[in-house]
Design a protein around this nucleic acid. Sequence first.
DNA 1: GTCTATACAGAGATAGAC
DNA 2: GTCTATCTCTGTATAGAC
Lengths: 231, 231
Amino acid sequence: MPPIKVKNAGKSVPARRKSAAPAKAQTRIQREKQDVILEAALDVFSLHGFRGATIDQIAEQAGMSKPNLLYYFPRKEEIHKRLMKTMLDTWLQPLREFDAEGDPIPEIRSYIRRKLEMARDFPRESRLFANEMLQGAPRLIDILEGELKDLVDEKAAVLLAWMDEGKIARTDPYHLIFSIWATTQHYADFDVQVRAVLGKERGGEGRFEDAARFLENLFMNGIVPKKQTVG
Amino acid sequence: MPPIKVKNAGKSVPARRKSAAPAKAQTRIQREKQDVILEAALDVFSLHGFRGATIDQIAEQAGMSKPNLLYYFPRKEEIHKRLMKTMLDTWLQPLREFDAEGDPIPEIRSYIRRKLEMARDFPRESRLFANEMLQGAPRLIDILEGELKDLVDEKAAVLLAWMDEGKIARTDPYHLIFSIWATTQHYADFDVQVRAVLGKERGGEGRFEDAARFLENLFMNGIVPKKQTVG
DNA sequence: GTCTATACAGAGATAGAC
DNA sequence: GTCTATCTCTGTATAGAC
């Protein structure tokens, strides 16, 4: 599985800032401080969820005092909201880029690979999302029922068309997408378990390559032995 | 998918109590109260994780005062520990029953079905576990590296033997197990998202039957169209 | 065995000096 | 813009009356 090229394992949020949003222009220092805070907050929120995370922890992780942090983000919820927004942008990008004009099998294969790369390179974002889901998505439900549903509906239609043309096997496109999400994000969200079960020898960095190989093969072929390849 | 027979959707913990553990015998009332507390605690812990959950919430959910609750479980951590223990027993049962003597394909198919039934019938247990994983399994890591690893090693060996005999396609047995866990538990842990994306028409009770059909088919056949079944 | 009252720490957030 | 001090509320846990 050569095309996994991304290096940095689980740091950095894209953290694009809209230049028109707040009335006041921001200094470079303000932006940098905010980014430090967001970075620290991602660590803490992704581990403990919204309610379990404390401003103290975030401040400590960010290397500043609690009041100082609150100078930049007056409310805990603001920090979380901003993280969620950035995270969703990053997180849904692979699905957005899923291309109806592409060649079906390679397109799906590449989607699986990209999702797995994201699990490897942005595990905190994955856990932030997972935490929100476990809590019933109180701060995200509108987006799930709106933007996300629309996007999935659109891609499901593409998959259905491919099935009609006999280019991929007929199956439920929604549950196919769910399965790709579930299997790839599992390697971020349940990372402790994966490493514990694989043990020292197999639980190292190579586990993502192994997973990639396995998942590609699973989604392509299932596990029923092919007559022509046996014996 | 007929064999999904379990009815009660997401209530009741087995809550077996070992009769030899605490020095003092327990009255019937004590047992009942403890069960009420554990039931309430499962609601709260599964939603908010250990740190996010509060004794106030649990007490309210259990319909008793906070001091009264603390009479039965002096520490928050005790409640959580007991829940985790019961949950793990329930949760790993299907894997324990995975039978080396059985017929490979039906055995795996049936394992998938049972895991999906558990996601449907014990979603809170699934979320309790998921919450613990997201936090890096601080209260569970020993079990993961011990009991669980041993159990998975054992079952992986069974799968490998089947592959050697050509009864199932050769693939990575560990990642196969991870994939079954991930896809089935997804329907408990990410339930909000599943229902949001499926919408009103398809997000109802039938979603589990749809998922079962899809997953069986995925694991058996993959998505590459079979030459003989196309056209 | 259950309640009221309360101790005491940690939480989010604000005031005001520098 | 950053800090110390502090307010208020919530949270875990205990004491002691009933």
